[in-house]
């Protein structure tokens, strides 16, 4: 395959960036999208041009490190992570635009790399159960109904990639936060801190500069793990209960 790539290049956080055009040829449809970028980077290196910076680590769809806006869609045309997207999803001769996640709360570090530290700070605000090592009762002391355990698991599948924020017209992180709130609210272990947790996390979310949720649903559509939009309803329900006292 031969492709034309328009890629966001930005030297650093305080530099202005621009879309640059590159051509790649002889791309195999079996390559992953990131392997196609590896090929481009080898070409650039050979020509003496600095390679394009982009994040990836596990390259099997679970670590959440990769994430690109591909022709306007978070993680591209398939419902998966960028690393699990393959070139057979594109046509020969296609023009592909590649940008970093766009959100005020995710500042660009360089080229396609953004800072998602805001997600860590939202978890720091309460996305945990306060139990010190060694203080745990026997694992079978508290049975958990299977439907609750399954829904907690579904929400806990979030990989923290940030596609939900990138896809949202308001750059809201409500799906990310709703997934964590739902995971812990479904379990008996999460109950003691349930009300304080949701208030504290939402405060941090707003402080980071993420936008509000207006029920567009683009987040859930873009989520590579298929986290459903109703985790946001769970969050809102908990938040209402907490604010009413």
């Amino acid at each position: 395959m031969n492709l034309t790539l328009k890629i966001w290049r930005q030297a650093g956080p305080r530099h202005t960036g621009e879309l640059m055009t590159y051509k790649v040829s002889d791309i195999s449809p079996d390559m992953s999208f990131l392997e196609m970028l590896d090929v481009l980077n080898e070409q650039l290196n050979a020509k003496g041009e600095e390679p394009i910076a982009f994040d990836s680590d596990c390259r099997e769809g679970i670590c959440g490190m990769c994430g690109l806006m591909i022709s306007g869609e978070a993680h591209g045309p398939e419902k998966t992570t960028t690393c699990q997207l393959h070139m057979r999803s594109f046509r020969d001769g296609e023009v592909i635009t590649i940008e970093p996640w766009r959100a005020n709360a995710f500042p660009v570090i360089k080229d396609l790399v953004v800072d998602r530290g805001a997600f860590d700070r939202i978890i720091q605000a309460g996305g945990y159960v306060s139990v010190n090592t060694g203080a745990a009762p026997d694992a079978h002391a508290t049975p958990v109904p299977k439907p609750a355990a399954d829904r907690a698991f579904m929400a806990a599948e979030c990989i923290g990639c940030g596609a939900c924020v990138a896809a949202c017209p308001n750059a809201s992180a409500m799906l990310f936060m709703g997934a964590k709130v739902t995971h812990l609210s479904e379990l008996p272990q999460g109950q003691p801190e349930r009300m304080a947790r949701v208030v504290s996390m939402v405060d941090q979310h707003d402080e980071e500069g993420f936008g509000g949720c207006t029920n567009v649903g683009a987040c859930s559509q873009a989520c590579p793990k298929g986290i459903p939009q109703d985790v946001i309803s769970t969050l809102n329900k908990d938040l209402r209960a907490a604010l009413r006292g």
Partner: peptide, 15 residues
Amino acid sequence: QCVAQGVPFAREYGG
């Protein structure tokens, strides 16, 4: 420890 932290291990119908 992991169960107390809320790690959602697979469970049977009895919980």
